[in-house]
């Protein structure tokens, strides 16, 4: 579909891909694309794109239970990249997906730079629409956030994946790093076409009776409304690097309503990720999309894309302090 096709105010262009609306169902929240269709009233068409579960070269069992735990206004998870391996994903799962319903994005992970490249190459030769590079998973010992927190290593992973595909490459950035904008700059130079901002924040919960962490892997990634302010700031920071290059961002972290989604878009996101919110409201995409449409109507905006990065920062006081 043409990059310029925007048939509704909600439609966006994302790296030349047409998304029917700005919502992206996030990796790790929706399995391999069919899980939520179990719920009557849910349709894959409700999302502009669906990002599949993190995929490695070989199958992975993932981490021991417990893997999830509710925390104030959020939750911890430590799944550990459980997946059947890229061969099964490409040969057996992708053929079952209906690519007329939405865009499907692969999520690539690995323990080594070479593994990232190999998995990307396998997806390059598949109908997948785009590839997200997960250099921010907090729940694996090698790769993941260990790569994502090191700008040089992040760039090496992106470079390797870039060699393996011409499909749009989205780099998923971690909030667990000192300077996310500097990292984004390295990734752009290495060939990243877009960013997902942010992955989960690392956290812990403790059972005070047993004095053990509740999560089997001891620590996990915090998601949900609790992290939204952190995510918004990170999107704003990464957007400062991206805007000159026209590089789009999938803003994500605690999106729970149309208002949340609009905040992310105003901060600099082109698309908005929905993850944890699906767990408590599987039909939330309808509500977010209709809320965004109402906002566009109210503000007489022709397209959601007009709103991206429209944040007007407060000016510092001009007068000198008189104290």
């Amino acid at each position: 579909m043409s990059a310029t096709t925007t048939d509704s105010p909600l439609a966006i262009d994302f790296c030349g891909l047409h998304f029917a609306n700005p919502l992206v169902l996030l990796s790790g929240c929706v399995g391999f694309g069919e899980e939520y269709t179990r719920v009557e009233g849910f349709s894959n068409r409700d999302a502009g794109a669906i990002c599949l579960k993190g995929t490695t070269l070989e199958p992975r069992l993932g981490n021991q239970p417990h893997r999830v735990y509710e925390t104030p206004d959020g939750m911890l998870n430590s799944i550990g990249l459980q997946n059947p391996g890229v061969g099964i994903v490409v040969d057996e799962i992708l053929p079952t997906l209906d690519f007329s319903e939405t865009r499907f994005i692969a999520n690539v992970s690995g323990s080594t730079v070479e593994e990232y490249e190999q998995v990307t190459r396998r997806f390059d030769n598949s109908p997948i629409d785009a590839i997200e590079i997960n250099i921010s998973c907090p729940n694996v010992k090698q790769g993941g956030v260990a790569f994502g927190n090191d700008p040089q290593m992040s760039a090496r992973v992106v470079e390797a994946c870039r060699r393996a595909t011409n499909k749009p490459l989205i780099t998923k950035l971690s909030p667990n790093q000192t300077d996310i904008a500097a990292n984004a700059k390295h990734c752009i130079e290495a060939g990243s076409d877009a960013f997902s901002v942010i992955n989960t924040l690392m956290g812990m919960a403790i059972d005070i009776e047993s004095r053990r962490p509740i999560i089997g892997n001891n620590q996990g990634g915090l998601s949900g409304p609790a992290i939204k302010p952190v995510a918004l700031l990170k999107v704003h920071q990464v957007y400062q690097v991206c805007k000159a290059h026209g590089i789009p961002i999938i803003g994500q972290g605690g999106v729970n309503s149309a208002e949340d989604a609009l905040e992310f878009i105003i901060a600099g996101a082109t698309a908005v990720g929905v993850g944890t919110a699906l767990f408590y409201d599987p039909l939330i995409c309808h509500k977010i999309n209709s809320g965004i449409a109402a906002y566009l109507g109210k503000h007489k905006l022709q397209s959601i894309m007009q709103l991206t990065g429209s944040l007007r920062l407060n000016e510092p006081p001009k007068a000198h302090c008189g104290c």
Binding site: V30, G31, E35, K53, Y69, M75
Partner: peptide
């Protein structure tokens, strides 16, 4: 039973070996 998040198979949070 196990701690559960999505309940529809999406998150793989409630697994058992």
């Amino acid at each position: 039973e196990e701690y559960m998040a999505c309940g529809v198979g999406g998150c793989a949070g409630c697994v058992v070996p």
